[in-house]
Design a protein around this nucleic acid. Sequence first.
DNA 1: TCTCTCTGGATCGTTTTTGCACCACCGATG
DNA 2: CATCGGTGGTGCAAAAACGATCCAGAGAGA
Lengths: 298, 298
Amino acid sequence: MIDWDDVRYFLAAARGGSVRAAAKRLGVNHATVLRRIAQLEARLGAQMFEKLPSGYRLTAAGEEVLEFANQMEATSHQLETRVFGRDQSIRGLLRVTLPPFLATHLLMPDIADFARLHPDIEMEIVSTGEVVNLTNREADVAIRLVSDRKTLPLNLHGLKGPDLRAGVYMSRDRLAALRAGAPDPIRPIVTGGQAVPDWIDEGEFRAAGVPFRTPGADAQIAAARQGIGMTKLPCFVGDADHLLVRVPGIDLKSTATIWLLTQGETRKTKRVRLFTEFVSRRLAAYAPLLAGLSLSRD
Amino acid sequence: MIDWDDVRYFLAAARGGSVRAAAKRLGVNHATVLRRIAQLEARLGAQMFEKLPSGYRLTAAGEEVLEFANQMEATSHQLETRVFGRDQSIRGLLRVTLPPFLATHLLMPDIADFARLHPDIEMEIVSTGEVVNLTNREADVAIRLVSDRKTLPLNLHGLKGPDLRAGVYMSRDRLAALRAGAPDPIRPIVTGGQAVPDWIDEGEFRAAGVPFRTPGADAQIAAARQGIGMTKLPCFVGDADHLLVRVPGIDLKSTATIWLLTQGETRKTKRVRLFTEFVSRRLAAYAPLLAGLSLSRD
DNA sequence: TCTCTCTGGATCGTTTTTGCACCACCGATG
DNA sequence: CATCGGTGGTGCAAAAACGATCCAGAGAGA
């Protein structure tokens, strides 16, 4: 009989492409992955990988095994979510994922309030740039921005929040200087790789010159503050920054709707319901701010 | 992340009904099962079993987990059969299951011939009374008796063998005594719990009295040899025994057909093909014997 | 070409897991 | 009432798994 956990190691190696990458994902030493895979291959009596100096590549047999390994993983995740769904105690872990800019500029104080209100809930905020998979139970609640034309995944249950609108902002001082007749060019600030936006031709003062490309929302804000140019920001971010003002003549853009997403059994959990209801109320209160109707958060 | 192998221990405990029974099935110490299940429950944060003095009983949560655990097991078995199906080498393990009386009275010499012919094939004969599950890959080849009106499982591939017929036998000496006019009653010998058979009224000499019930084919043969009464046996068993003769006036019964069954991917294997072809040839040679047309094996 | 970083693999202490021997308990049975 | 076979649970020593480390080799880039 094979050790079922070996399949988990196999899966990590197949995805990581190397023993060391798999070890990193699994949080173990690479020698362990080496041994577990050797053990699995011995018990199955077949080579699952070509052992190249550049890494592990799946053999034909390995490709077939991968299919079933994926299936086992899916079942394992379902198993986990099912028992988690039965958990009706307050005490326990609650993992939330949300876009970084929502965390840093808007919801972190509210999440802190929630944590203070429920000290028995162990919270974990997963706010990396990557979209985490709710189905695989990498998180229990996801706060997502969903473009209005896109549809939600069918297996997720959504609680609709307020709309989020964005504006184009630039430095307040720079705008004053422009009004006074300063000739310096105003450059569009965009994230790397993004096409030149269409709003450069709309405003009272036109952006010109090559775009200023920088990754990360915070870097864009900093660049705008320094007067490099103008950039598109969510209203609640731009309006709250007293060093920035909306560029006159450019309308607000309706970008997306905030959704609170939960998955399958997990939303029956008391912790999840408490959190989604709490955040939902707070978001509703922020609705004017998010829509860009109030020019300051104060 | 849970240890997938813990699910295997959970499954054994859920099926065995107790930690010790699970340990026996898994071939490990019962303390190990105890600890693995405790670990799984800790990681999932839920009780899967009620720990009663009489054993472990599944909780509601455990029942739900069981469903997915079964699914994981099925996937694991599929994974094993898939890689096994790719194995085209002679050397390796080949597990065969067949009814005990076929093994002891007919095929064991042939299986021994096969093993001698292919010393690289490690053979394992699973000839307990229980029907082993081919789908779960507890065996690679099954030699089964299939009643003509029953249908084969769809996922199995069958190679049809000769028909097997049975007759009613009694002690040769006893028959001679009867012909000489001995008055002792002849009792029908049947397996425990079986109804009184219909052939007691057919023969030249009628069976009478309460049935003699004994489990096991070998015990029935011994009882018949001792002259207790008459019993129904496969022809190849009864005809080969010089102490027994067919009861005059009772026709042969057509009971079932011998099938060589293989499953899914495993039949692509060289070992499996070699074995099924070999046994198929031998069975064909035995066809008259099995049909009861030759009165002795010699 | 030299370095730097990636790869798999081997070795060696150490940690974790496992098996064994117990214990207490419960129920059936002689 | 004592016994016997079954249950779960618990220390302790042996065994197995693990992590840290080192090594050789392969590429990439300076």
